[in-house]
């Protein structure tokens, strides 16, 4: 856009702005202790997702824990050989837990981003143009609302061998309706604001008005729903895996839970249940808590006097 002759200065300024932005966000989150705890949990989760497989003491699937005698150690509680115990098949729970974070992270992150991005764009375009564009896009969201997510996802996954990217696509393909509706209604009110009219009056094109004037003012809501999208995507991925429609080649937390459940060992093997269950619950709850902290700020209606 801009043909500035001082790209360097501009770049410094931008870096500066981003730095202060990050600092502001951090300072803001520090104030809300819950949200801050959420940040720590999510931070730990991302770390595990990235480095977990490297940190895992054993291969989660190939390696079988054996006792001194060499026989397979099945359903053993936490011991020195397996810090978090073993599964019914003699696999190391800790290794599975560490390795299982990655697919959860990938689907959560990209599913959430996809949900947010598609929803934001659809909402923006639909709300800004109105008329038949709006009508078509909104009926499309109605359609995705009426088709039940879980059964449709299961159907699609029976025909195609599941892998995490496909799951990410399916999840984003169904969840974008949520941000789309909210962003649209937000756009509808921003569109009526004077500065948008003023932009049109000064000759700004639709594209420019939409992305420079309307877009930035609904971006916070878009971010918020991206965060929620991450939580939804993680929950959806875990649910699909729990039903046995996960990527069969990868250990994920949902798949771990399915294995305990299927093998009928839930009653005894608490060490096998709790790591993945608490992991999923902690991450989804944390993401929501962070989102809520922002919602209190973004939603002008509920940010009245404290």
């Amino acid at each position: 856009m801009s043909t500035e002759t001082k790209p360097k200065a501009e770049l410094y300024k931008r870096v500066d702005r981003i730095q202060s932005l990050v600092r502001d966000q951090f300072a803001f989150l520090r104030q809300d202790r819950l949200a801050f705890a959420g940040v720590l949990v999510v931070g730990a989760f991302v770390f595990t997702g990235v480095f977990g497989p490297l940190l895992a003491p054993h291969d989660p699937i190939e390696y079988t824990v054996r006792d001194q005698a060499g026989s397979i150690l099945r359903l053993s509680g936490p011991t020195g050989a397996a810090v978090l115990g073993t599964t019914a098949y003699g696999k190391d729970v800790l290794s599975q837990f560490l390795a299982g974070a990655r697919p959860t992270l990938i689907v959560g992150l990209f599913g959430g981003l996809g949900t947010g991005a598609i929803g934001f764009l659809v909402g923006l375009v639909s709300g800004y143009y109105g008329g038949w564009v709006d009508e078509v896009l909104m009926r499309l969201t109605d359609l995705t609302f009426s088709l039940p997510f879980m059964p449709m996802a299961l159907l699609l996954l029976t025909f195609v061998t599941p892998n995490i990217w496909l799951m990410t696509a399916i999840i984003a393909g169904f969840l974008w309706k949520m941000p789309a509706r909210v962003v649209r209604s937000e756009v509808l009110s921003v569109r009526e604001r004077t500065f948008v009219k003023s932009a049109r009056a000064s000759g700004a094109s639709d594209f420019r008005t939409m992305f420079y004037h309307v877009g930035p003012n609904v971006l916070p809501i878009g971010f918020l729903y991206t965060a929620y999208g991450v939580a939804w995507a993680i929950a959806a991925q875990a649910s699909l895996a729990f039903l046995g429609f996960g990527d069969p080649t990868m250990t994920s937390w949902g798949r771990m839970l399915r294995q305990v459940f299927e093998s009928g060992n839930m009653r005894i093997a608490w060490w096998w249940v709790f790591p993945p269950a608490i992991g999923i619950a902690a991450v989804t709850t944390s993401v929501f808590l962070i989102g809520r902290a922002y919602e209190e700020v973004i939603n002008p209606e509920i940010q009245t006097d404290q």
Partner: peptide, 29 residues
């Protein structure tokens, strides 16, 4: 032809600096 609107609290894009606000018409035209 330019138009100035009623509400000074709403007629400026809250996410632009004064430089951008005043400079934008120059960019457009």
């Amino acid at each position: 032809v330019q138009i100035i609107f009623q509400d000074p609290f709403d007629s400026l894009n809250p996410r632009q600096t004064v430089r951008k606000l005043v400079g934008e018409p120059l960019t457009i035209h």
